[in-house]
Amino acid sequence: MNTIINQLFEIEKKALEQNFTGLERNLKRIYNELEEKGYKIINPLGTNYDERDSSIDANILNSNSKKITKVIRPTIYKTENDTLQLVQKAVVIVE
């Protein structure tokens, strides 16, 4: 499922970059279904990088880098037996 979510994330990213709004609802619908199935998908783009955040694998560009400027794949949590568990770390670039 992680691969499917990553592809979905790519599709969303491309649509956004190309200002293509036609997919918005379909993507929202799919994300909604995934949420119903217990997945929590987090896109940390634009947030300040917290070095304590172990749901993220960061590539830090220089020692005073703070902001997450690119997300190559998102964080995915899944609810198993009523508790959330990390199933994929985000891969990000911090600059």
Binding site: D53, Y77, L86
Partner: peptide
């Protein structure tokens, strides 16, 4: 944090420790 998404690492303990921890929404 139990879901695996947060870890402060080791920090020297003082008499009073204050740590802001991030929360996952609606859980």
């Amino acid at each position: 944090r139990a879901d695996g998404g947060f870890d402060t690492g080791l920090l020297k303990a003082n008499k009073k420790i204050a740590e802001f921890v991030p929360l996952l929404e609606k859980t």
